[in-house]
């Protein structure tokens, strides 16, 4: 039984990833899709960081008076993931900026409505919305 229980961290990460993926596939609201992408991203980060954990280890910071006999968790996933978080917020901002522009062009952020308006040709949809507004 303990053979399998030691893998719980991966399973939690997988469930989180499934929730994020479901939001991205099933929901039509573009803002909601970006939220799903964020949950997906946290699950990937959690995956890396949980692999870096060493049982009985401590944060990878050398204590005063030498590191003799001190067990550290793996610092490499921490480095990669902390930069990934900051890059993630920058790309999230870019995605949200695109959503704002889509809303201004089409008047909606629901994916199915945008598809209906665009009708295969993006510019037609745009002029249709503007025509309605006038």
């Amino acid at each position: 039984m303990s053979e399998v229980l030691g893998l719980w961290n991966y399973w939690v990460v997988i469930v989180l990833m499934m929730i994020g993926l479901y939001i991205m596939i099933a929901r039509d609201s573009l803002v909601k899709k970006v939220m799903g992408l964020n949950i997906f991203q946290v699950s990937v980060i959690m995956f890396y960081v949980s692999m870096g954990k060493v049982r009985g280890g401590t944060a990878p910071i050398l204590p005063e008076g030498g590191a003799e006999g001190v067990l550290f968790s793996n610092p490499l996933p921490h480095v990669l993931m902390l930069t990934a978080i900051v890059v993630g917020i920058a790309t999230t901002a870019l995605a949200l900026a695109l959503v704002v522009r889509i809303k201004e062009a089409y008047g909606t952020i629901e994916e199915d409505e945008i598809h209906a308006l665009a009708g295969g040709d993006g510019m037609d949809g745009r002029s249709a919305v503007q025509g309605e507004a006038e």
């Binding site: 964020n38 946290v42 954990k53 990878p60 968790s73 921490h78 978080i85 993630g88 999230t92």
Partner: peptide
């Protein structure tokens, strides 16, 4: 999970900046 630097970043980014965005 001993990733104090990651926790720092996630708290400031996730609970702060991204919610505002």
């Amino acid at each position: 999970m001993d990733a104090v630097d990651v926790a720092f970043t996630e708290a400031a980014v996730g609970a702060g900046v991204s919610t505002v965005l």
